[in-house]
Design a protein around this nucleic acid. Structure first.
Lengths: 111, 111
DNA sequence: ATCATTGTTAACCATAGAGTTAACAATAAT
DNA sequence: ATTATTGTTAACTCTATGGTTAACAATGAT
C-alpha cells in the first residue's frame, strides 16, 4: 500500500535524523553486538539507549535476538533501500547541478 | 567541519521525514512555482505552509526569490547529495541482502 | 541465597514539531 | 482610495521527542 510506504519513509527518515542513531547503525554495520556494547560510546543513560533502539527497531533498521540476559542487535538495512529509491529520483538534479527548470534553461543559454 | 556536517544531516533527514515536505520537493522538481501554487494540494492553513517552507529552506533544500508579492520557490537539491553519500556506505548491505557479519557468515556456510 | 549484570518500564521534564486562528505587511488591481 | 491577493508573524494548543531518575525483571556468577 502506498500510504504505508509513506508512513514507513516518515519513520525511516525520522529515525535517521538523530546522530546517535546514525552512529548506532554505523557500529552495527561492522558487526552485531549486545546493547551494552553498542551503547558504550554514548554518554547517555540506559533508558535513553533503550528508546533509541526502539526507534531503530520500529523503523525496521535493527533487529534483536535475546540470548539470556543480553540482547544481540544487528543491522537490518533493507529499509534503507527505500530511501535510496526515493533519492534516486532526485539524483539527476544534483549530479547535473540542475535545480529545477529555471537553472536548466539558464544552463542552456549559451548553446 | 565534521560537526556541521552532522548537524546538517540531522536537519536534512528531519526535513525529509514529513510527507508534506517531500511532496513539496517533488512538485518543485518539476518546475519552480510561487508559494500559493506550491500549497494548492495541501489541505492546510497558510501559516502551516510557511513553516514547512522554512524547514525546507533552512535545510538548504529550497530557495526563494521574491518577486513583488509572490515568492518563487525552487528546489536546491545539493544537500541531497550528502544523504546519498551517507547512504552509499550502506548500499553494500541491502544490495547483497547482507545485514551485519552474522548473515555474511550464514551466507557462506555452503561454500 | 545473594549479588552483579543486562536491559526494560514507568513517570516525569523540557524542548521541538505540526497545526490552528487572528492580525499584519506589502503589493497589485479597481 | 479601497479592496483583493500573497505571504509572514505572533500567540496559542497538542503531541512527539530526547533526556532524566527510580524501580523492576531476568539472567548469570559467587
Amino acid at each position: 500500500m502506498v500510504n504505508n510506504d509513506i508512513k514507513q519513509l516518515d519513520q525511516i527518515f525520522s529515525a535517521l535524523s538523530d546522530a546517535t542513531r546514525r552512529e548506532m547503525l554505523s557500529r552495527l554495520a561492522e558487526r552485531e553486538m549486545p546493547v551494552w556494547e553498542l551503547a558504550e560510546p554514548f554518554n547517555m543513560s540506559k533508558p535513553a539507549i533503550t528508546k533509541h533502539l526502539k526507534v531503530l527497531e520500529s523503523a525496521g533498521l535493527m533487529k534483536r535476538s535475546v540470548q539470556g540476559r543480553t540482547h544481540i542487535c544487528r543491522l537490518t538495512s533493507s529499509p534503507l533501500s527505500e530511501v535510496a529509491d526515493w533519492l534516486a529520483f532526485y539524483e539527476k538534479f544534483w549530479s547535473k547541478k540542475l535545480d529545477g527548470l529555471d537553472e536548466f534553461l539558464t544552463s542552456r543559454k549559451g548553446e
